[in-house]
Design a binder for these strands. Structure first.
Lengths: 209, 209, 209, 209
DNA sequence: GATGAATGAGCTTTCATTCAT
DNA sequence: AATGAATGAAAGCTCATTCAT
């Protein structure tokens, strides 16, 4: 119950940051959205940057946990990759169909510019989670490559970047559509099948029976 | 001669917007970088948003012109796609190795919120250029699909999004590397070959002789 | 036992007020220093000003009591003045070598601006104690002047001000030295002898045998 | 003409800082008092602390310049000391009878806590001026001691502290009186003669003919 | 055209104070 | 009596924008 409001602030921040971007987000609006006072936001978070870092850390951890859980269920790297795509979709749905992916790519200040110890620590935790997430991808891909199931002509991290980059772009524009942009000529189903089709492009020479 | 300083401001804005993002960019810094006064920026541009729109329009037009020029040189859709990839790389090099791609994906306000007629016009010109760019991609892909040279299982615009999304991600992280981020484990050459490899994934059943 | 925590808050407030000044002192820090919660401070004291007034009243009363005790031991006005100088030194030593003199010269709001009856009363008690302290000085000096032992060319209150002002300055800079300021070129012993020398300057024409 | 407003802000800050103390002073009020906007204060001064440091530096320099000018007019150390006392009185009168002495004894943060280079420099300039002021006093006293005109039983800096401390106290309480405090039982003339009497206490064995 | 001093709306942040427990 | 989460007024500060020169 005690951590309740802190979580509510994080959730509200995810909503507002997603919608407007960090810089345009106003603390007062986040507070109102969370149903608490401006002051309480600063009671739980040193400053606006702390709130952003906390949100990013929360999202990164959530994603990594989900990936680890889901991916332990299968040994086929392709099943795993497909599951990961599923996870991102689920998260979008969980967060009121907002694409929170933008938040993860908000520009952060250089770590040297951060004075507070607490924030420095949070910052490096984020870097750890990011590395971990890339590692989870790379491991799956690398393993698949060794088994001959995934195309070995590209470094694992390149394949990971391609998949994540494509996914990010597809979801981001899908959100534009929901906002009323008429020039996005595809649906959520199109995205799903496009991602799955993309994954299949990277199948290696050996085909699982 | 008269338009000289206006162009210098645009160029400076590209640099600063690329480096810090629109929201963090400060007019005074752009002015200093351009070697002019803050006042002059507002003499040429109604406000900060006008400057952003002008930059986006400039970049979009430049890219589209380059695409049209280069792509008329060949009839093979794959040669065209590879040329387009080359164009992006050239533009990055031209702009002091800054990845200006971020600027094109800055969040813009809804067009209804814009009051000024001039800005409204500029805004819709941008939409036109964006549509045009997507169209140039889609046409090439669509044409390739009809010729059986490109995979027909995905809508042209999906393939376009995938390619552009992957490219964006690859370049963006490459820039991080130049800023000193040690966790980016690939080089400019890796990006080039990854993009070309990705393009080849979309080859259709029929192989050009 | 009941008044225990209240006293601990007062003591903590003396420490923090001395170190940082009233305006910079933060209730939370005083509470922490006293080992109680922020809420308890407001349980015992109406507000921050009440705390300051309580501290000032406590210090004034303590000083006046000490002066009255010590000064009844001798009849020689010079012995009394020297004893008073000793009292200030002792109080500095008692309070962890912090010069609490600053607290007594904190700016207070005009009494008309104070609404609370309780605070108004406390305020006037302080004025009483201040008047009393000045009176104790003045009486000693005045008495000495009548006996021809102290220089009569200055009003008693002027002499008192000079002595207190000099003492305050000497102690204040001594504290700066303890904080690391290298430009304070004298020691605690120098202060003691300077004050005693100053007192002797005010000897009158008649010398006690 | 250009530096006009900056000076007006400094003057206004002296007024407000004198009256309320630094912490209670509100930038907006200083701006209004100076007849400019809040923003202009921050245009000329990095932040509130910069404004305080600038005010202190201005006052210190002004005082030192006046001391140097006046004191070159005579060779008698007593004449010099009396002139210095006169300077302080003049300054009080020049500044609308406000005793700005409080400003010089505002608590400043430790220099290590100041990040900005510009402020660090200003800070050390202040320390220089302070040292210089003490030096001007000490030199006069020391010279007088060597000539046998001033009491040699105390270190020069102790005598300086006593004189300055006494003067500060006398003026500070005089200001209280102007504010309506009835318990200050002396006048401006009393202060003048008290200071001059104090100075005479420190005459040495040799009397100038 | 060009400058930069000047403005002020709007934001973040602080912290005394309150109050449910 | 005691706690500390919660509040919100009040302040500092930023920076796009204006305007006299």
């Amino acid at each position: 119950m005690k951590k309740d409001k802190q979580q509510m602030i994080i959730k509200a921040a995810i909503r507002i940051f997603s919608r407007k971007g960090y810089q345009y987000a106003i603390i007062g609006e986040i507070a109102k959205d969370a149903g608490v006072s401006k002051g309480l936001v600063h009671f739980y978070f040193e400053n606006k940057l702390d709130l952003l870092l906390s949100v990013i850390l929360f999202l990164s951890k959530t994603i990594n946990e989900m990936i680890q859980q889901k991916c332990s269920l299968s040994k086929d790297p392709f099943v795993k990759l497909h599951m990961m795509a599923q996870i991102f979709q689920d998260l979008v749905r969980q967060n009121e169909n907002l694409y929170w992916g933008h938040i993860l790519s908000e520009r952060l200040p250089d770590i040297e510019e951060i004075k507070s110890k607490k924030l420095k620590k949070k910052y490096s935790e984020i870097l750890d989670e990011t590395k971990k997430m890339k590692g989870l991808f790379d491991d799956i891909i690398h393993q698949g490559q060794r088994q001959g199931l995934i195309d070995s002509s590209l470094k694992p991290q390149m394949i990971g970047q391609i998949i994540r980059g494509a996914g990010q772009r597809l979801y981001a524009d899908l959100e534009l559509k929901q906002k009323g942009n008429k020039h996005v000529g595809y649906t959520e189903e199109d995205v799903t099948s496009a991602i799955h089709a993309l994954l299949d492009k990277f199948r290696g020479p050996k085909i699982r029976s």
